[in-house]
């Protein structure tokens, strides 16, 4: 496969194993660019990238910004915030305004599921979903996969345990889709209140105990638990959650000795993950950040270059 047949990257859903591999290979090659002293290329010179973030996110936004700049694109950040009168109106109105400025790619984050897809219908440039509500966060799943593939050499038949607030997590959904497409075995480990309805049919084995769920796992992927969900609404307390579902040295022993520990960030140390583990030898959390820039470079280059080759699906 030498091209990528999609105009936008709205989710992992709909991508084939070959298409995912294409993006990962390209990202793999992009890693070295960021490791050089001279980090800037001219691949996207003259093209305009707009980061449209309706939800604040320093990490993802700066990762996309760096990726664009390293490819030579002109990058503009628009932080719209959620205080605007009506979020939806802002979405369409802002999109139409931006569209009139002829950007080549819009990177969108929004608190509503489907927002990136809605926007993609209204604008004439490529759209990259940087997280839409509890739906998908495709570049996060790609960077996780790249991190795993570089450490383990493959994705097929490895066991990945995704632990924590799967219910509210777009990262979990995108990862479940991607890992299944690549032939990995996916487990979810969480209290039942933090699992979505029908999780058993979503391509993941369901566990309610860390000891069982982490047994022989190659990768332990922790998810962030938001503060407002910790005090009685979904779990009774931080201390009870950490006791049963927080990743500490004891629980990590159940996984393979060389299991990777991952977290999409930002971490709640002492809630879902103990500091000693987050900073420990098995942690690849910093690599994830590095792979993030590479994956986003690969995605934007792919969409913008393939777009120039004519009409796309």
């Amino acid at each position: 496969m030498d091209s990528f047949p999609h105009r936008h990257l709205l989710g992992i859903k709909g991508l084939t194993e070959q298409e995912i591999t294409y993006l990962l290979d390209k990202a793999d090659a992009a890693v070295n660019i960021s490791r050089q002293r001279e980090k800037k290329t001219s691949t996207l010179r003259g093209l305009t990238q707009i980061n449209l973030f309706f939800e604040a996110s320093t990490r993802t936004q700066s990762s996309f910004e760096l990726a664009g700049k390293r490819l030579g694109a002109d990058v503009m950040n628009m932080s719209v915030g959620n205080s605007s009168v009506k979020k939806g109106e802002t979405l369409i109105d802002t999109a139409m305004t931006l569209n009139a400025m002829h950007p080549d790619v819009l990177v969108v984050r929004h608190s509503s599921a489907g927002a990136a897809a809605l926007l993609a219908q209204k604008v004439s440039c490529a759209v990259v979903n940087a997280g839409d509500g509890q739906h998908e966060h495709p570049t996060q799943a790609l960077l996780d996969a790249l991190t795993i593939r570089r450490a383990k050499g493959k994705l097929s038949r490895i066991i990945v345990a995704i632990c924590g607030d799967v219910l509210h997590s777009r990262v979990a959904r995108s990862n479940i889709l991607l890992l299944n497409a690549m032939g990995a075995r996916v487990r979810v480990v969480a209290p039942a209140t933090l699992l979505p309805n029908g999780i058993g049919q979503m391509g993941a084995e369901v566990y309610h105990s860390m000891e069982e769920g982490l047994k022989d796992a190659d990768v332990v992927m922790m998810l962030r638990l938001q503060r407002e969900r910790m005090s009685g609404a979904f779990v009774p307390s931080v201390r009870e959650y950490f006791r049963y579902f927080g990743l500490d040295a004891e629980k990590l022993k159940a996984a393979k000795e060389d299991a990777l520990v991952m977290h999409p960030g930002p971490m709640n140390r002492g809630v879902e993950i103990a500091s000693e583990i987050a900073d420990g030898p098995q942690s690849v959390i910093e690599q994830q950040v590095e792979m993030g820039v590479a994956v986003r470079m690969a995605v934007m280059e792919t969409l913008l270059v393939s777009q120039n080759q004519g009409p796309r699906a």
């Binding site: 599921a113 489907g114 509500g133 509890q134 739906h135 777009r170 979505p196 309805n197 029908g198």
Partner: peptide, 13 residues
């Protein structure tokens, strides 16, 4: 409707 479809779409059921 609460169910698998809502879960995949990331919508509250």
């Amino acid at each position: 409707n609460e169910g698998l479809l809502a879960s995949w779409l990331g919508l509250s059921g």
